[in-house]
Computed example of a mutant assay.
Amino acid sequence: MELKVATRSSGGTAIVAVSGEIDLYTAPQLQAEFARLISTSPQRVVIDMSEVEFCDSTGVNVLLSALKRLRERGGDLEVAAPRSAVRKILQVTGLDSVFTVHDAVPDDLLTTEHKG
Rank of each mutant, 00 (worst) to 15 (best):
E2N: 11
K4W: 04
R8S: 13
S9I: 13
S9R: 15
S10E: 15
G12H: 09
T13P: 06
V18D: 14
V18R: 12
G20E: 08
G20H: 01
E21I: 00
Y25Q: 10
T26M: 02
P28M: 10
P28D: 09
Q29Y: 01
Q29I: 10
L30N: 04
L30T: 02
Q31N: 15
R36I: 03
L37R: 11
I38V: 08
T40F: 00
S41I: 06
V46S: 00
V46H: 01
D48R: 06
M49H: 00
M49C: 08
S50W: 01
E53D: 09
D56R: 04
S57F: 01
S57C: 11
G59C: 05
G59E: 04
R69H: 04
L70F: 03
E72R: 09
R73P: 01
R73Y: 01
G74T: 08
D76F: 00
E78L: 05
A80C: 04
A81V: 01
R83W: 03
A85N: 13
R87S: 14
R87K: 14
K88Q: 14
I89C: 12
I89K: 12
T93I: 11
G94S: 08
V101E: 03
H102Y: 01
H102L: 00
A104H: 08
A104N: 07
V105M: 06
P106A: 04
L109G: 03
L110Q: 13
T111H: 10
K115G: 09
K115C: 02
G116S: 15
G116M: 13
